[in-house]
């Protein structure tokens, strides 16, 4: 009989404390890949992964679950991740959702199967503030993690106890420190997820007294590490976790319809209502009009007006080679009305 968890159990002095735990992981890029692999190897019961993107060659340098074939086939990340993770540990129930995690999509996942923990594998503050509000509304802890260049940052947010992300940051940072402008090295990802992952294991094992209550950051190139106790920053008037919390980021009205993707020179356009496209039918029509089209069952890709476009079944489109959201929207409407 295999005992794959023996070394972990030796350390924890407990048998498989994670077996019945469910984690909802938002984002399956660099952070998400590393976190998912850690949790699946640790033997959690259930992992739900939601991601809006597909595997690209520029991901392979740091997004550890993906391989060249995934990039060649442009597999949706959630699907490619599920496939690899099931090879690693077939005992874990993994569900993959390819969608843009907005208020509606994430609330539906919370309602369908309430997780024990929400994990941040996203690349933008808009989604992080949404996770922050969900965490408060559903009383589920979450772990903020982010990295860029050689830097990383992480913080555990426990509803009803610690300050939340909105207490720490009164406005959405808009200073363009993303993989797009500063690049990223893989060790910064691994260090960030090592911190997030350790806190995740403590929370899932119920070892609350060991959970960090500090905001941690580091720079692996400059050899600096810092840790700040943040309890004093909790705000009674916070719109997300205060006495009269309104959870502003759960409102669809606060959601932008276009987004520039981190590190990709790409704009995503979302339809205002979910639309189900018949991709093979659409491919046929486009080919009849002289456009070369590729489909793989999950998405359709083509070159239109000199730009590579990728359309998902739910009507989302990625438009590559631009950061101009207005142009991207126009192209979307030109193609799909």
């Amino acid at each position: 009989m295999h005992n794959r968890y023996s070394r972990q159990e030796l350390f924890l002095k407990e048998k498989q404390p994670f077996a019945n735990k469910h984690v909802l992981l938002v984002g399956a890029g660099a952070l998400g890949s590393a976190l998912a692999e850690m949790l699946v190897r640790a033997g959690i019961g259930r992992l739900t992964i939601i991601d809006r993107d597909y595997v690209d060659w520029t991901n392979l340098q740091r997004q550890q679950l993906y391989k060249e074939q995934d990039a060649q086939e442009r597999l949706p990340k959630a699907e490619a991740a599920k496939k690899r993770l099931e090879e690693i540990n077939s005992d874990v129930f993994i569900s993959a959702v390819t969608a843009d995690g907005g208020p509606e999509e994430l609330s539906a996942l919370m309602n369908a199967h309430l997780p024990d923990l929400l994990l941040d594998g996203t690349d933008n503050f808009e989604t992080r503030f949404l996770i922050n509000d969900l965490s408060q509304k559903y009383n589920v802890p979450w772990i903020y993690g982010a990295c860029v260049g050689s830097q990383g940052i992480s913080c555990v947010i426990v509803p009803g106890e610690t300050p939340c992300l909105a207490c720490l940051l009164d406005v959405l940072p808009a200073e363009g420190m993303t993989c797009d402008t500063a690049g990223i090295i893989a060790p910064a990802v691994q260090m960030t997820t090592a911190i997030q992952g350790a806190e995740a294991l403590k929370i899932l094992a119920g070892r609350w007294e060991e959970v960090s209550r500090e905001l941690v950051s580091f720079d692996l190139w400059k050899n600096t590490y810092s840790s700040i106790k943040i309890a004093s920053l909790k705000k009674a008037s916070c719109p997300s976790c205060g006495k009269e919390a309104s959870h502003p980021y759960l409102s669809e009205a606060n959601r932008t319809r276009t987004a520039v993707l981190c590190g990709r020179d790409t704009v995503q356009v979302r339809p205002s209502e979910e639309r189900a496209f018949n991709l093979s039918q659409l491919a046929l029509t486009m080919e009849q009009h002289g456009t070369k089209v590729k489909t793989n069952g999950f998405l359709l890709s083509a070159i239109v007006s000199g730009k590579r476009i990728v359309l998902f079944q739910d009507g989302r489109m990625l438009i590559h080679g631009t950061k101009n959201t207005a142009d991207a929207k126009k192209l979307y409407q030109q193609l799909l009305g």
Partner: peptide, 10 residues
């Protein structure tokens, strides 16, 4: 002095 900068990538 400790300075923590919020970053958004991931």
């Amino acid at each position: 002095i400790e300075i923590v900068q919020f970053v958004g990538g991931g």
